[in-house]
Design a protein around this nucleic acid. Structure first.
Length: 227
DNA sequence: GCGACAG
DNA sequence: ATCTTGTCGC
């Protein structure tokens, strides 16, 4: 029989870590202007994690540089503890290439999370940089669906009715995206920054490009190249 | 007991 | 996330 990792003891330690880190989250900012936004995405295949990092110039609204990296995926995906699987690859690519940025954007949840600390928050805390996440859906939070036309949005609230993010209709009649602050950013600023990004699809360009590279281009190239 | 559950 | 082709619809 296959052994389960992390075991109960380890999971409890991760929960404790999350409780301690959650108290350090700052929901205000960014303090400085966001000129370089860094979108990072990861896709998987067997034991490998394919990471892509897109440096995005917000003034010119164009990608500056794209980095690709393959690392080992050490741990499994566990809802509520996504960070144990994806934070290592995210940290790896940024440290490996010494990437500089003003704000980190991930395809993950931020404070809209059962423990109030999703991957986007963990990453922001790790780098001590503003961060937020955009996803298909959230693991936690209450909201109403926004209107069907592009630009409509509604608030996401926790049990105490505090705003923990926004649901944004990024394209006419298309399923909305979920925006939640990670660290060093207010919910409203995460929304405002998102709205200023170019949308050619449901997700903003920086994330869409990061997704394409990690999931299709880069991975395909590596896999084909090994045959 | 049943459904929900970021990527 | 991944396994996978074309196809219907907002």
């Amino acid at each position: 029989m296959k052994k389960r990792w992390p075991d109960e003891t380890s999971r409890r330690l991760y929960r404790d870590l999350q409780r301690r880190l959650a108290r350090r989250i700052v929901l205000a900012g960014p303090e400085n202007p966001v000129r370089l936004l860094l979108a990072v995405d990861v896709s998987y295949r067997e034991e490998d994690a394919y990471v892509s990092a897109v440096i995005w110039n917000t003034e010119k609204a164009c990608p500056v540089r794209i980095y690709l990296l393959r690392v080992l995926a050490e741990l499994p995906y566990i809802s509520g503890m996504f960070f144990i699987r994806e934070l290592p690859p995210v940290v790896s690519i940024i440290r490996t290439f010494s990437i500089e940025f003003d704000l980190l954007l991930l395809n993950a949840s931020g404070i809209a999370h059962p423990a109030g600390i999703g991957l986007a928050s963990h990453a922001g805390l790790y780098f001590k940089k503003p961060s937020f996440g955009i996803t298909d859906r959230i693991p936690c939070g209450a909201y109403k669906m926004p209107g069907l036309k592009k630009g409509n949005y509604t608030r996401i609230m926790d049990r105490e009715r505090r705003v923990i993010g926004y649901v944004l209709r990024s394209q006419d009649y298309v399923r909305p995206i979920f925006i939640t602050p990670g660290h060093l950013i207010s919910p409203k600023n995460a929304l405002e920054i998102t709205i200023k990004l170019p949308f050619h699809a449901r997700f903003p360009e920086p994330l869409r490009i990061a997704d394409i590279y990690s999931r299709k281009e880069f991975k395909k190239e590596i896999i084909e190249g090994c045959r």
